[in-house]
Write a protein that binds this DNA or RNA. Structure first.
Lengths: 262, 262
DNA sequence: TCAAAAGTGTTGGAAGTACACCCATGT
DNA sequence: ACATGGGTGTACTTCCAACACTTTTGA
C-alpha cells in the first residue's frame, strides 16, 4: 500500500570530526571528505554517504557507509538534520539524512588516505558537492554549541585522559583559551569525570592525574529517544563507550539523538 | 548516491501543539490527531502527515499537509527528527521526517472537529499508529526544554499580550508556577519584548501593559540554517507573527492524507 | 473600603570569572 | 635552583529564586 515515493532518492551522509594538529601544531577540527566518482559533481569533494537500504535503519546505514568509505567507527554518532530542498541536487530529487560523528585521533590516523579520501580543516574547505558546505557549517555550529552544555568532549579522547587534555579539546573546538583552574573545578563539580588513581610521569612538571568519564552520572532520565538509541547502540559492539551518546543538559536530561537548533 | 532508493516510502508528519483549557480550566498542551482511513493501523489516531512530492521541499510538504488535513497554518514550524527504523511500519519500509509546530488558540479553535480530526491532551494519548506515541513524547520534551532557553512562547499568542499571558504560556508548558516578579524582569532585561504603550482595562485590578515581541531579537539562534529558514518562511506570508492580522482560514476537514498515502 | 492582580525593591545564594599563589617534577 | 605545568584559594561579579511591599483598578 504505501507506495515508495517515486523519484526521490533517500541517502544518509555523515560529517565526521576529529582533532588533528594544524600547520602551527595547535590541535584543531578536521574532517574527512571523499571524492565523488560519478555525476553530479564528478570529482568534487563530498561528505561520505550513500543510499539507505530497505533493510537497515538510518543510523545503521550511516555506520555502514562510514566503515565502507572511510574505515571509521565513530565513538559518537548523532542525527543532525534532514536536508531535502528540491534543488539541492541538479540531476535528481535527493533527500539526505545527515549524521555527525566524533572519532579519536588514533583512529583518525588509520584512515586510508589517497586520491579518494582526505582530511580537511573544518573551517577551510573547498567548494563541496551539493549543499555540503552548508551542512558542514551547521554541523560545526552544533559541535560548538553542544560542547558548551554537554559532555561530548570525551568522544575525542581515549579511555583515560588528563584534565589538561580534556581542556585542550574544549579549547580546540571552541577556539578560545579556558582558565585551567576554573575548568578543573567545573569538571570536578559536575561529576562527569572521576580520577583513575593513576598519574602520568615524564613531563618536566608535576605529574597530572588521569581521569575517566563517570558513566554512573549518566544523565539519568534521558529523553524519550534514549531507549531506542541505547538499544541500537548495543548492536554495534565496536563503539565501546561506557557512556553512549547520552546527553546531559545541566541537571536535566536529554534524548541522546536530538535536533536542538540552539 | 542519488539513485532513487527503491522500496522506501518517504513521508512528512507534524506534531502540532496548541494551548487549550483542560477539564479544570487550566491551560495545557493539546494536539490534533487524525484518524487513519487505511491500513496499516486503520482507524487508529495518528499524526497528520503524508508523502513528499518530488516538487516540494520537506518544509513545504509539512505546511501543505497541515493545511489539507487540519486547516492549520502554524506560527512556528521546525524540523524535529527523522524516524527510520526498519520495523516502524508493519507493511512497508517507511521513513518519516517529523516537524513540530505551534499554533495560536484562536486558530486552533477553528479546526473543524469531526470523526477524522480531534484534539487530545498531549500527555494523555491513546495508542497511536506507528511509533507516533514516541514521536509525540519526544516533541513534548523538545517543546519543554526549548521553552527554557529560547523565545518560542509567543508563537502561542497573538500580536499583543500581557506579561501575565506570556507567563501563563510558560507555566502551562513547563507545568510549574513561575514568580511573576522574576518572570517580568527576565523578559524585560532580555529585550525580547517591548511595551506597545497600550493597556488592558476591564479586569478588576490594575490594568496591565500590553507588549509585543521585539522582532529585532532573533527568535532562536538556529545557527547557519537560519538564513535558509528565514528565506523559506518569507515565501509563506501568513506565518509571521509581526506582520498584520494575516488571518488564517477556515479549516475544512479534508480526507486525511497520511503517512502511507500514495 | 477591599480584593486582586500589576508592578517594584531587597536580599541571599549559586555559579562563573579573574587571578594570585603554592606544589611536584625533570633538567 | 628554576622552569613548567598541575593544582588550590579567594575575591568579585552576575544571575536567579524568594518574598515583602507598593500601586492601580473594579466592585
Amino acid at each position: 500500500m504505501p507506495a515508495p515515493t517515486p523519484g526521490i532518492g533517500l541517502a544518509v551522509s555523515t560529517v565526521i570530526f576529529a582533532l588533528r594538529p594544524n600547520e602551527t601544531g595547535e590541535p584543531s577540527v578536521w574532517l574527512p571528505l571523499v571524492r565523488r566518482i560519478r555525476d553530479p559533481y564528478l570529482h568534487r569533494w563530498a561528505l561520505p554517504g550513500g543510499p539507505v537500504s530497505v533493510d537497515e535503519s538510518l543510523e545503521t546505514s550511516a555506520r555502514r557507509n562510514l566503515l565502507e568509505t572511510t574505515g571509521l567507527q565513530p565513538t559518537y554518532l548523532e542525527q543532525l538534520y534532514a536536508f531535502g530542498d528540491v534543488d539541492r541536487s541538479p540531476t535528481t530529487r535527493l533527500v539526505s539524512i545527515v549524521y555527525w560523528a566524533l572519532v579519536r585521533p588514533e583512529e583518525a590516523e588509520r584512515v586510508s588516505l589517497g586520491e579518494n579520501v582526505r582530511w580537511f580543516p573544518a573551517d577551510d574547505l573547498p567548494d563541496l558537492a551539493f549543499d555540503h558546505n552548508l551542512i558542514v557549517e551547521y554541523a560545526l555550529w552544533r559541535l560548538r554549541t553542544k560542547m558548551e552544555y554537554s559532555r561530548i568532549a570525551h568522544a575525542f579522547l581515549g579511555e583515560q585522559f588528563t584534565l589538561a587534555e580534556l581542556r585542550g579539546v574544549h579549547e580546540a573546538v571552541l577556539q578560545k583559551p579556558l582558565d585551567p583552574a576554573n575548568f578543573r573545578r567545573q569538571m570536578e563539580s559536575s561529576g562527569a569525570v572521576e580520577p583513575t588513581g593513576e598519574v602520568v610521569s615524564g613531563g618536566r612538571h608535576r605529574p597530572p592525574k588521569l581521569y575517566r568519564y563517570a558513566g554512573a552520572v549518566e544523565l539519568v532520565d534521558a529523553g524519550p529517544l534514549t531507549a531506542r538509541v541505547v538499544a541500537a547502540a548495543a548492536q554495534h559492539p565496536p563503539i565501546s563507550r561506557d557512556d553512549g551518546p547520552a546527553e546531559p543538559r545541566v541537571a536535566e536530561s536529554a534524548p541522546a539523538l536530538q535536533e536542538d537548533h540552539r
